[in-house]
């Protein structure tokens, strides 16, 4: 009974009320010999009154519960508001987490780049010089301010070719094994080729300068290693020779004449423009 809701109690009391009132009215309408005794009648009337009192008490309780229900409704509205606030906060936190995760990922990438850069630092001036040299030498046409006598060429020079992959492949053709062979092979001066190449790279400007002023003789160029020992070698006339044992085969350059003409047009200096490998 204690677990019954107030509504159920009220309905039960109304049902009881109806039954008792029905009994009372039936007794009033019944003939005299069928009527109940006065004691029973009094008890019935008292029961009716008690049911009425019970109904009134339950209605008073319902009124109290109504007030409590209003408080509960207010609380529910507030809880809903807080729920929405929490959901909003949660959404914002999720967005922040996503942004931070992206930022951390990018920062880690940058840190890795910084660490990589710190391992092998490059002088910025040297880098800019190299960039200038590449842009000057590997262009598809001569610079606008190019004049006869200018040492700049729109193609790689012999030294640059030797420094490139083709030059290294020549070494491999000779049976040497990569970098170790490069390190082992020494120039007449005693320094290794790799060191020599690096030096060439660093002092390329100087080489150009000395070449243009005629300071670098052809015998000095012959000192550059492998040129005389390779299967393929360039002579001073610009012909490619492939040495096979004791004999050598000359590979005619198809565009020899035209290239020479181009070179003649681009430079008037006979010592430097006779062939492409003289640079």
């Amino acid at each position: 009974m204690s677990h019954k809701s107030t509504r159920e109690k009220l309905l039960a009391v109304v049902d009881d009320y109806e039954i008792v009132s029905k009994e009372l009215i039936e007794n009033a309408l019944a003939p005299k010999h069928q009527k109940i005794s006065s004691a029973e009648h009094t008890a019935l009337v008292e029961l009716l009154v008690s049911k009425d009192e019970e109904l009134k008490k339950l209605l008073a309780l319902a009124a109290e519960q109504e007030t409590v229900e209003e408080t509960i409704n207010e609380l529910r509205v507030n809880v809903d508001i807080q729920d929405s606030e929490i959901q909003k906060l949660q959404r914002q936190l999720k967005e922040a987490e996503q942004i931070l995760a992206t930022a951390i990922f990018q920062a880690r990438q940058k840190l890795a780049s910084i660490a990589k850069a710190n391992q092998r630092p490059v002088n910025s001036e040297e880098l800019i010089k190299y960039a200038h040299r590449i842009s000057a030498a590997d262009a598809v046409c001569a610079p606008l301010n190019w004049m006869p006598g200018d040492i700049r060429r729109p193609y790689p020079t012999d030294i640059e070719m030797r420094m490139g992959l083709l030059g290294k492949s020549e070494l491999n053709l000779n049976g040497s094994t990569g970098i170790s062979a490069l390190n082992n092979m020494t120039t007449p001066g005693g320094s290794s080729i790799l060191a020599g190449l690096q030096q060439h790279g660093n002092n390329l400007g100087e080489v150009h300068r000395t070449a243009s002023t005629g300071g670098l003789s052809s015998s000095e160029y012959n000192d550059i290693p492998n040129s005389t020992h390779n299967q393929f070698s360039w002579n001073q006339m610009g012909d490619l020779h492939m040495s096979m044992g004791s004999s050598s085969v000359s590979l005619d350059n198809r565009h020899k004449d035209t290239s020479q003409d181009d070179v003649e047009v681009m430079s008037t200096d006979s010592s430097s423009s006779s062939s492409s490998d003289s640079q």
């Binding site: 204690s2 809701s5 509504r7 319902a62 519960q65 109504e66 007030t67 409590v68 229900e69 509960i72």
Partner: peptide, 17 residues
């Protein structure tokens, strides 16, 4: 009976509420 069914806040007893 119909009015009692329309009343609000009496779905539980007072303790539960």
């Amino acid at each position: 009976r119909s009015q009692i069914k329309q009343l609000t806040g009496i779905d539980f007893n007072k303790e539960e509420q």
